[in-house]
Amino acid sequence: MEEGKVISQLVQESAAAYSIIHEKFGSAISDFDANGTMPFFEVVDTSRWTEIALFMRDHPRLKFNYMACLSGVDYPAEGKLGIVCNFESLTHFHHKLAVKVKCARDGGSLQSVALVWHTANWHEREAYDMFGILFTGHPELKRILCPDDWVGYPLRKDYKVQDQYHGIKVPY
């Protein structure tokens, strides 16, 4: 019981943080989802993603100074790719928020936030490596885990492994 109370208080704080962002950006972001584990919202107007990111980092009552994670996601049913970013505010506030940003599966791209949080640099490269999400404005967008000449994006749902890599058979 005690724990449930703590979580809901966290969600309340996150909701308060959300309303500050919502006040500024209005319909550019979606409604607040009071998910007990990780409350989140989605960026609807993706062309304002960097702007929202800077606002979240610098606003005196938000201070999301810590990007805990940035993960790529594939949504084949919607024909989209996306990222989920987890933010916290170290030493300032207890609120936590996750932000989802999506782009088209073919030929879509997202704004990079690598210069807002340096953590995003490698994480965006990983999302590019695994899902093929392009990040505009990223200082060095190239593969980070797979070899540079790897074909395809391994974590996409429809990924098929290549037959040969440098003359070595890949499938079992």
């Binding site: 391994p154 990924y159 492994v161 070595i168 058979k169 890949v170 499938p171 079992y172």
Partner: peptide
């Protein structure tokens, strides 16, 4: 020996060092 736990979904793993 053969790719071990990565034999099916390990796109990045060589399925047996005896291939090389």
């Amino acid at each position: 020996n053969c790719g071990g736990p990565y034999w099916e979904h390990g796109y990045h793993v060589l399925k047996g060092v005896d291939r090389i």
